[in-house]
Computed example of a mutant assay.
Amino acid sequence: MYTGIVQGTARVLSLHKETGHQRIVLVQDSPLFDNIDIGASVSVNGTCLTVTAYSSDSATFDISNRTAEITTLENLKVNDRVNIERSHRAGEENGGHALYGHIESTAQVVSWQPLGETVSAVLQLEPATSAYVFEKGFIGLHGCSLTVDRLDEERHTLTVNLIPLTLALTNLSGLQVGDRVNVEIDQTTRTLVDTLQRTLARQRGKSGDTVKGSL
């Protein structure tokens, strides 16, 4: 599990396509991979990946074709920077919200408005994803825990405000209009919405059966 508090960025050192997956090697600028081991889970741009090899300053991950298809990882290039968060340890402070690294979809940046040292960004969501997004709720964007400032349900867009620290520590500062980011919705919200929808669907079905039986 992760918290959405990105610890820094790493640089893509190499990318190799294999049958059924691609292998990526990331090199650290700060001690992000210290004390790492094979099998460790790391959030890379919000996507939970498993360490398959490591050295003193790098870590290697395998990205399945399915993961590549539903995330922005398939578009990475050498020297791109990715957000990194090591898995959360029990007992440590959680300054964000619970994230699992299971990317729901991607969203496209449609507006990027600097406001002093901050940025107001508007992103276009996929319609199926926007059903789980609420104003003042949490959302994970490229692994960053952010609060939804505004939501336009008709246009399926959301607005987030990026503070200077977020811009300094993550790769969100390099985003431009047209870029896509990985989206993870709050799983508690998903559970509540899906449970409510299924319950209402069952109730409507029972009501329909009752009406048919009385005819």
Rank of each mutant, 00 (worst) to 15 (best):
T3K: 00
T3D: 00
T3H: 00
I5H: 03
V6D: 07
Q7N: 01
T9D: 05
A10G: 02
R11Y: 03
V12G: 03
S14F: 12
G20V: 00
G20N: 01
H21I: 06
R23S: 12
I24M: 15
I24Q: 14
V25F: 06
Q28F: 03
P31N: 11
F33N: 02
N35F: 06
S41H: 02
S41I: 02
S43Q: 04
C48S: 13
L49V: 00
T52P: 08
A53S: 15
D57F: 04
D57L: 05
S58E: 02
S58K: 06
F61C: 01
D62T: 08
D62N: 14
I63P: 00
I63Q: 00
N65V: 04
T67H: 04
A68Q: 07
A68L: 10
T71K: 05
N75R: 15
N79C: 14
N83M: 03
I84Q: 08
E85G: 09
R86D: 05
R86V: 04
H88S: 11
A90Q: 15
E92G: 10
E93F: 14
G95P: 09
G96C: 04
G101V: 08
G101W: 05
T106D: 03
V109C: 12
S111C: 14
L115S: 11
G116W: 00
V122M: 08
L123P: 09
A128I: 13
S130A: 15
Y132V: 04
Y132P: 02
Y132H: 04
V133N: 12
V133W: 11
G140F: 06
C144Y: 12
S145G: 12
T147N: 11
V148G: 11
R155S: 15
R155D: 15
T159C: 07
N161P: 02
L162R: 09
I163H: 08
T166Q: 01
T166E: 00
L167R: 12
A168T: 13
L172H: 02
L172D: 00
S173P: 05
S173D: 10
D186E: 07
Q187H: 13
T188V: 14
T189S: 13
T189P: 09
V193A: 10
D194G: 10
T199R: 03
L200W: 01
G205F: 10
G208Q: 12
D209N: 13
T210Y: 11
